[in-house]
Design a binder for these strands. Sequence first.
DNA 1: ATTACGGTATGACGTTACGTCAGTGTCAAC
DNA 2: GTTGACACTGACGTAACGTCATACCGTAAT
Lengths: 256, 256
Amino acid sequence: MYKVKELAELTGVSVRTLHHYDHIGLLSPKEIGENGYRYYGQVEVTRLQQILFFKEMDFSLSRIKQIIDDPEFDQASALRQHKEILMEKKKRIERMVKSVDQTLDSLEGGKTMTDKERFEPFSREEMEKHQEKYEAEVKERWGDTDAYRESKQKTASYTDEDWKKIQNESNEIDRQIIARMEYGPADQEVQRLIGQKQQHITDHFYTCSDEIFRGLGDMYVNDPRFKKNIDKWKEGYAEFLRDAIHRYCDRSNKKK
Amino acid sequence: MYKVKELAELTGVSVRTLHHYDHIGLLSPKEIGENGYRYYGQVEVTRLQQILFFKEMDFSLSRIKQIIDDPEFDQASALRQHKEILMEKKKRIERMVKSVDQTLDSLEGGKTMTDKERFEPFSREEMEKHQEKYEAEVKERWGDTDAYRESKQKTASYTDEDWKKIQNESNEIDRQIIARMEYGPADQEVQRLIGQKQQHITDHFYTCSDEIFRGLGDMYVNDPRFKKNIDKWKEGYAEFLRDAIHRYCDRSNKKK
DNA sequence: ATTACGGTATGACGTTACGTCAGTGTCAAC
DNA sequence: GTTGACACTGACGTAACGTCATACCGTAAT
């Protein structure tokens, strides 16, 4: 069993951090002594290792707590995913090194770089970070499903241009849906656009069945991060989407 | 010339970030239009690239400003240093990947890992981060000097044990100096310990001449980060060290 | 029994680097 | 003239701690 200073020294995490993690319920001690001291056991040590891996992946503490508190949390599959993300980070560093070399060459009178080239390693990082987080979240929901693998396969070859195009198309659908929010989720045109959205996901990511689509709609509302981002478009848009998706899938089921 | 949204899109940096950088004097626009708009030119674009490289190295914004505002700032040598740090980061990711593999193996009934092994990739990161920051600061002060190269060469083969031993020795000298602060910087025993400190640096890092030693003393006080860390030992310890070092070097000069 | 020191607890303020929002002005297309 | 996008400033909020103050606990030396 470890006390706070011992655990801090073992792991490189500060005592303050351990207090903080206890306070937010992320890492609770195995037991509190009669003296009020925190004692950590093997389970807590393992959990802290998991926490540090996720932190390395730039997850927020609240996200980490959500993930590793989930009864379906699978440490092995999370580790495999971490490995993939680490390899992506490694590639990114390699691109950055290359950019440093090119910038040095440019300074020494070699080939000049365009403004866009100079910022590619930074801006690509942003893109891939989003991809990683998106990927991680999709995987968290469905793990090693067919949908996940299909998405991985489809997206592996996407270029920046592809991503931008896909993003723009998706955004345009959202804009059109929002323009008709006043007519309600059952509105014929809204329903048509929802179908378009489902098809867009199927075309570019994974086969989006009605079941998966319903799950997405639920997640848009239930997952704070998704809700926050979606409501940025317009207040209440997350609930609207969920309701419209369920209505669409209800009608879809009835058609069969 | 770019306006804020254009520069934001080119670089992946948000408009808010550009405003913030302007506000803190890190990245000022080339000119402000009569309409109050910010316009950025090529020099600013280059500076932003430098900023993003330093951010990638986890420098604080205030540090970045100090560095790139320095008239002696050499972009080429900074880039070479970035490259080294990036390579260190790459190695660290490789160690982390290895740790993920070992943890997976351990989960699947393979060889168990000690608690210490499980946290090595994290705790080594901390160690090397300090090394990197230290290295960067030393280099910033003296660039590609003999001292720097000698330090780099000497420290390249240091193991964790070596680092700990060196750290402990250095800390012990500090403790002894602090124990005699009340006697003043000119105290004979304090002066003896200062000589010991100089010799310690020469033995383990680089040949620490009186000139370099004086510069270190000045930096302990003038550089906010150094002062902050040194004063952690004891309030006023940074000034005390500087004064004691100058006194020691004065006497050293007189001996010649 | 006392003392000294390191370790432990809690509460609270401060920090960095922005994100987000509100209110208002500017620009260019219609 | 209107409108939507872009731009400005000021200000509040956030995450993840670091740091500090104050007080209690544990242990070893005296």
